[in-house]
Every structure is written in structure tokens, then in C-alpha cells.
């Protein structure tokens, strides 16, 4: 009786968007995220941006709208004479893409492990596997990065690996809990009695129902990954000079604060806005996907 007034059936994607756009904050977050990704990844293909050329004669130029700035260097130059805007964009590309890489690898491995330990009937074995990852869970991410970076050399891909390792346990834990919740439901038992194999059970019954948990987790982890990558860059253990990266740009600009230069603040603001947009989108997706459950907001 409820839908008898509708003359067409909406697809899943349309329903999702219909509920997503009810919150303006989430839509703003999505627009900002989209803008950031476009600017960072699409524009350098069309405009020639060079973050590496040093020109000592043009050090520390202010942005072009201030006295003394040049139009060619839109946001000015850093202390070595490199164009700041292109450094910002390339650095953003580095930060975001390595953070995404880390999150995806942690997600794939963590979800697989979580499902395997969740389905496993042998209680002690799954408990053992989970608790051996507990040590990564207990240790702060920075510590794990220290371990990895001291064994391998400090470069950006190694940092991404370390962050993937530190994100792994959270995926394992939440996937395990979600699978445990699903497995005790009666339709799984019915399917099992009908004779489906474990693989089929997983693929057709469990995975579609824990997809919401996985997605929400992924966005939270992505925000954390961006924060961690820039934090490691800040400590000097990530991208090495002259590779641009938002965190390392921030710390090389730290001395500039005392002379009131804007170069020191801008990478930090960029990091903050990106993380805020990612968290807001993640929050909105979480709100829409858990809409049927007991509402609390």
C-alpha cells in the first residue's frame, strides 16, 4: 500500500542519492571532495606544472595578488624558488593517492581475513589469528611506521606500506564482528541446509549484507590514512626532497611562520579541508546506509 502512489520504481542508486542529498553538509562535502580530486588529478594533465625546477633568484615570492608577486607563479614560490601551486597540486596527488593505495590494500587483506576468521568454525584457530594482529592494533600507527621505515628506507611507498599494516587490524575486527552477526541469522542456516558451499554462502549471502559496514569503515580509514601520511611526511620520514608532499611541505615551511609567510599555512589548510571532506562524505554514506536501523543520529 505504501508505494501505490509511485508510478515508477527507483533504482538503488537513485534511492541512495535521494536520501543522501537530504543533508546539505554531506552534499557540500561531496562537492568539495570532487573539486579537490578534479583539481589535483585532472588539471596537471592539461596545464604544464613543474614542481621541481629551482630558481634561486625568485625565492619566496608572495602570491600573485600581493605586491611583488608574478602571474606565472600563481601562489608564489617556496624557499628554493619552486612554483608553489604546482608543488601543492603534485604534493596533493602524492598524499592522496598513496593514502588511497594504503587504504585499499589494507581493506582487501583485512576483509578477506575477517571473513575467513568469521566463517571459521574452529574457535581457537580464528581467535589466534585475530589476536596476533592485536599487537598491531595496540601499537600506535606511528610506531609501526618507525619499524617499517627503519628496516626499509624512508620513502613514500614504504610509508604507504606501513600505514596499510597499521590499518589492517581495524578492518579485520569490524569485518569479523559483522560476519559474526550475520552468520547466526536463520537464512544462512537455511542456505547451509540446502547444501551451498562456503564460497557460495560468502559470496551471495554474507558479502552483500556486510557491504554497508565495509564501506563506512573504508571511508573512515581513508581519512585516517591521509592524516597519517601527512603526519609521517611532517616527521621527515615520508617523501624525501625534492618530492613534494603536503606533510613535508608543512615542516619545511615551519620556520617561515615567524616571518609571517603564507606558505607555511596553506599545506595544512589543504590537508584539513581534504580530511574534513572525506569524513563528511563518509559520515553521510554511513547515515544513509544505516537508515533502516534504530535511529539516533
Amino acid at each position: 500500500m505504501k508505494y501505490q502512489n509511485y508510478d515508477k520504481v527507483l533504482s538503488d542508486r537513485q534511492i541512495f542519492w535521494h536520501f543522501y542529498k537530504k543533508s546539505t553538509a554531506d552534499v557540500i562535502g561531496l562537492i568539495v571532495l570532487f573539486l579537490i580530486l578534479t583539481v589535483i588529478f585532472v588539471i596537471p594533465y592539461f596545464v604544464n606544472m613543474d614542481p621541481y625546477t629551482q630558481d634561486i633568484t625568485k625565492r619566496l615570492l608572495p602570491p600573485s595578488w600581493v605586491d611583488g608577486g608574478e602571474l606565472r607563479h600563481f601562489l608564489g614560490t617556496d624557499e628554493f624558488g619552486r612554483d608553489f601551486l604546482s608543488r601543492l597540486l603534485h604534493g596533493g596527488a602524492n598524499t592522496i593517492s598513496y593514502a588511497f593505495l594504503a587504504t585499499i590494500s589494507a581493506a582487501v587483506a583485512g576483509i578477506a581475513l575477517g571473513i575467513m576468521t568469521g566463517i571459521d568454525r574452529h574457535h581457537v584457530r580464528s581467535s589466534l589469528v585475530r589476536h596476533s594482529f592485536d599487537i598491531i592494533f595496540a601499537a600506535p600507527s606511528i610506531l609501526i611506521v618507525f619499524v617499517v621505515v627503519s628496516i626499509l628506507s624512508p620513502t613514500l611507498p614504504h610509508t604507504a606500506l606501513a600505514i596499510a599494516i597499521s590499518l589492517l587490524p581495524r578492518f579485520i575486527h569490524t569485518t569479523y564482528n559483522a560476519v559474526k552477526h550475520e552468520i547466526v541469522k536463520d537464512y544462512i542456516k537455511a542456505n547451509n541446509l540446502d547444501g551451498s558451499s562456503y564460497l557460495r554462502l560468502t559470496m551471495e549471502c554474507i558479502v552483500p549484507n556486510i557491504l554497508s559496514v565495509i564501506t563506512i569503515n573504508f571511508w573512515e580509514a581513508f581519512a585516517v590514512a591521509v592524516l597519517d601520511i601527512s603526519a609521517i611526511g611532517y616527521l621527515g620520514l615520508g617523501a624525501q626532497a625534492p618530492e613534494p608532499e603536503w606533510g613535508s611541505m608543512l615542516i619545511s615551511g615551519m620556520d617561515l611562520i615567524y616571518i609571517g609567510n603564507s606558505k607555511a599555512i596553506i599545506p595544512g589548510i589543504a590537508i584539513g579541508i581534504t580530511i574534513a571532506a572525506i569524513s563528511q562524505v563518509g559520515h553521510g554514506i554511513g547515515r544513509v546506509l544505516t537508515m533502516g536501523e534504530k535511529k539516533w543520529l
Binding site: 553538509a25 603526519a231 607555511a264 584539513g272 574534513a276
Partner: peptide
Amino acid sequence: TAVLRLTTSFPVFWLGQMMITIFAV
């Protein structure tokens, strides 16, 4: 709550630098 979520997205080291600039310098 929305504003708080926004402000804690900014990295803590940047926030520290800002606080030093404002309150100390």
C-alpha cells in the same frame, strides 16, 4: 557538533603551529 567534526579534521601538528603563532608569537 558539525563544526567540531570540521575542526578536528585539521592535523594536530598544523593546529599546534597555529596555536604557537597566535598565542606565543
